[in-house]
Nucleic acid binder design. Structure first.
Lengths: 192, 192
DNA sequence: GTCTATAATTCGATAGAC
DNA sequence: GTCTATCGAATTATAGAC
């Protein structure tokens, strides 16, 4: 039983290469060299350089969307939903840090109409997150601050995580990260 | 009295163009077209496309370093130093959002040896910030969490700000942002 | 400082043989 | 699926006239 196809191995090797060099700076020749074959062969696996990027980004974006939709479908309190959302975000990031790094760093390299579709879908995600926060404020669980800024600030803390996953020399512990991040988001840095 | 030289106006126009299109995607032809003259003329203002990026990045990076060094030289408590640091970060970002956006989004496009110099200097900044946090933990002002994660998480919330400055249709109020962000960083999202 | 013209290189992608 | 060979376009940068 093989647990990954040839194409899946291709995609992972190239993903790491693109992460290292940046999407624009990674040429088809770089990709071919990394796989020890010629440029023309790359086109056995993909249609174009652009479609390669699109594949990575919409794939990981979908995973984030499925996660938030699952959480929204639960009957939990806003407080608990936000905790679940943070936990799911950390889970995806620790499982697929290279995809997440690409999502954060390279989405600007999409071309129309994919760029607009990507931004629109991201906006959907953020709106759902704002919904949770707004609900929490209504129910007096969260402080009544600017909802948009709250959502973006929390997302900013989460969008940094892939760096820790990829830089860290030791195996990281998602549960430990989850604890620390939830602690920070919900009660801040002050001791009391 | 003119308050900006011809070169300064050139740099600002090009900075906004690069912010809009991305550094790699912005060609010398794009720059020339934006300024209504020919490609060769661009080289009257700059030596190369790379040196243009280096100029922007090290300029704004310097401003951040001067700010943190000024704060470190004060006799304030760690708590107060961190508040001042956040305030200064917000100040720089609201004053120079395009530079800050470039700093966050395009530093990867530096080439060696400038890339290494940039990363090294950024590490210096982060170390100084960790110092403030570690001191605050020692003095029992901050919770004893992972210092590195605390620093990076706070930085992540700050590194998002330029988006708000540049996207917002209304004039933003730095003091209002400062209040909200300090509130979040120090006491989190929870009501109580 | 502005232009035309072009050098020198690199890029993504394809044709066609095996 | 893999190769050689190459196309056509785009790139940064420079030369030299005005």
């Amino acid at each position: 039983m093989k647990n990954s196809t040839k194409k899946e191995r291709f995609l992972l090797v190239v993903l790491k290469l693109i992460h290292r060099k940046g999407f624009k700076a990674t040429t088809m020749r770089d990709i071919a060299h990394e796989l020890n074959f010629e440029v023309a062969n790359v086109y056995n696996y993909i249609d174009s350089k652009q479609s390669l990027l699109e594949g990575y980004l919409f794939d990981i974006q979908d995973e984030f969307h499925k996660a938030i939709d699952t959480i929204l479908a639960t009957p939990h309190s806003p407080n608990e939903k936000l905790r679940l959302l943070v936990a799911s975000y950390i889970g995806i990031t620790t499982r697929r840090p290279y995809h997440q790094a690409l999502l954060v760093n390279e989405w600007r390299n999409l071309k129309e109409p994919q760029l607009q579709e990507f931004v629109s879908r991201r906006k959907d995600y953020e709106n759902k997150m704002r919904g949770i926060i707004a609900e929490g404020i209504e129910e007096d669980q969260f402080r009544a601050n600017d909802v948009e800024m709250m959502a973006q600030t929390i997302l900013a803390t989460l969008r940094w995580l892939h760096n820790k996953c990829l830089d860290s020399e030791t195996i990281i512990n998602p549960l430990e990260i989850e604890k620390q991040l939830l602690d920070f988001i919900f009660t801040g840095i002050s001791k009391k």
